[in-house]
């Protein structure tokens, strides 16, 4: 018999995905625009030829099924989503949405995963040490700039980094410390090639600034969150008892204080994932990173319903999967929550 906990979480997972896909279906359509017609008008005006626009638009809308009642569109959309068929873009005809996302999603996931993990672990570690070594006020002082940075949105900070590392005085020395755009050196023809070490190096080098703008901004938040948790944990009876048991400082720090503070911190991570992803998407735009960010902007600008739906659905899906994974890990690290309980 499957456990209550797992059934509950998996149910939550599907519910989240269902709600997310429903939202991305209806929200763009609320604008009540006719993207094909608008696009055709635009083109026609540029070419100075205005005839047939309505007919062509009607034909296209028919082909995409946009002329059907909304509920019919919705039902067939749900069917496609269930088969993981994200449909075809209204304006990028050469590739299916699945193909477009396959090309870009990897970059986004890589950037998000690595920078979120780095920020989470370094920030959490800093917060933990900051509280444990409270006498050491230097640590608190070192935190101050990170706290200030955490008030800035990722992409704004990305712009700051660009300015600092690229457009400014560094130019005077002809330094190319970090590249300002792209995900790898585009001049090498056979790339992307993940078996090539130099490609890997190039990818890391290109990802540094985008990742840094996420890491530096989110570090302070994790540190402060962890510090708060450590304060609470330090006041727990078992901490005093650990000391009375004559346990060494490092054991009390790792196995008692951090171990117990980490649980709510992980919950925080699960809650933040959606926000991080949306932040990353904006950072990608700033750094012209070839992730889904650029694609999303383009699709929104065009009111490209199927593509918007596809991208947002995939992002929501990834977020839900991560949350589900964290939920599944949680009982392993907190014995008070068990798979069999609820």
């Amino acid at each position: 018999m499957p456990s209550k906990y797992i059934v509950g979480r998996v149910g939550m997972f599907f519910l989240t995905i269902f709600l997310a896909s429903t939202l991305v279906f209806f929200l763009p359509r609320l604008s009540g625009r006719d993207p094909f017609r608008e696009k055709l008008f635009e083109e026609a005006q540029r070419g100075g030829y205005l005839e047939d626009v309505d007919e062509i638009a009607a034909a296209l809308n028919e082909r995409y099924g946009f002329d059907r009642p909304l509920w019919q569109q919705y039902v067939s959309y749900l069917g496609e989503i269930a088969r993981f068929d994200l449909g075809t873009s209204q304006f990028t005809f050469s590739k299916s949405n699945n193909q477009l996302l396959a090309e870009t999603l990897g970059w986004t996931i890589g950037l998000t995963f690595i920078s979120a993990m780095v920020a989470f672990f370094i920030g959490t570690g800093m917060g933990a040490i900051m509280e444990w070594r409270r006498q050491n006020t230097g640590l608190l002082a070192a935190m101050a700039p990170f706290l200030m940075m955490s008030a800035v949105p990722y992409f704004i900070f990305g712009l700051v980094l660009l300015t600092v590392f690229w457009f400014s005085w560094l130019q005077a020395f002809d330094w190319e410390l970090f590249p300002p755009y792209g995900a790898y050196d585009p001049t090498v023809e056979e790339w992307p090639d993940w078996s090539d070490f130099r490609f890997l190096g190039s990818a890391v080098w290109h990802a540094t600034l985008p990742a840094l703008s996420i890491v530096l901004v989110s570090l302070g938040g994790w540190a402060m969150g962890m510090r708060g948790m450590m304060v609470t944990t330090k006041g727990e009876d078992y901490m005093l008892q650990a000391e009375a048991k004559g346990l060494p400082d490092n054991v009390r720090f790792y196995r008692y204080a951090i171990r117990n503070s980490l649980l709510p911190q992980l919950t925080g991570l699960a809650l933040q994932i959606g926000l991080i992803v949306s932040g990353v998407v904006l950072v990608e735009i700033v750094f012209t990173y070839p992730g889904v960010g650029g694609l999303l902007v383009q699709s929104i600008r065009n009111s490209d319903y199927p593509l918007i739906q596809g991208i947002v659905f995939v992002l929501a899906f990834c977020t839900a999967v991560t949350t589900l994974l964290l939920d599944m890990i949680y009982p392993l690290i907190d014995p008070r929550i068990s798979y069999s309980g609820n």
């Binding site: 009876d237 078992y238 005093l240 000391e243 009375a244 048991k245 196995r255 117990n260």
Partner: peptide
């Protein structure tokens, strides 16, 4: 000296045990 020569019995019903480890581990670590 703590625990070996002088030990503390905490207040009753306080959560003086680390919630994430088994009783065995908490006896053994001392």
């Amino acid at each position: 000296t703590r625990l070996r020569d002088i030990a503390l019995v905490p207040q009753g019903a306080m959560n003086s045990l680390n919630p994430v480890y088994r009783v065995r581990d908490q006896i053994v670590d001392g």
